[in-house]
């Protein structure tokens, strides 16, 4: 997919914008967009949006709430969600600085 196509995919939908017949809704965390993606595979869309939305390779793909393989071809009107990983600890994912704190664990440790 070309850079121009990726930009087209990541453009936020403007209120009142007319839908075309090939539109698929894509969700990732708080982000959502609608684009002409019917006929493309889940893998195509993941690859196209991976950098723009920072989609984790671990993120499970759902189509209309059902887990699907990457090879599934999207149909017009479907909703594709890449399930964003659960929030864990305050750090930006994959950049975890080793902040030190004192130990208050009340359990015995090896």
């Amino acid at each position: 997919m070309s850079d121009a196509q990726v930009k087209g995919l990541t453009r936020t939908k403007v209120a009142g914008q007319t839908k075309t017949q090939d539109q698929v809704r894509v969700l990732y965390g708080v982000h959502s967009l609608e684009a002409d993606l019917a006929g493309r595979t889940v893998a195509d869309v993941r690859q196209a949006l991976r950098q723009a939305l920072n989609i984790s390779p671990q993120a499970v793909a759902l189509v209309d709430g059902r887990e699907v393989e990457e090879s599934v071809i999207l149909l017009a009107g479907q909703e594709l969600e890449f399930v964003r990983l659960a929030g864990e600890k305050g750090y930006v994912r994959s950049t975890r600085p080793p902040f030190v704190r004192s130990c208050h664990n009340t359990h015995s440790h090896s």
Partner: peptide, 14 residues
Amino acid sequence: MSCEELAQEGAPQL
């Protein structure tokens, strides 16, 4: 976690 592991835990949160 061991105390050493706990010492590595914690990160800036907002």
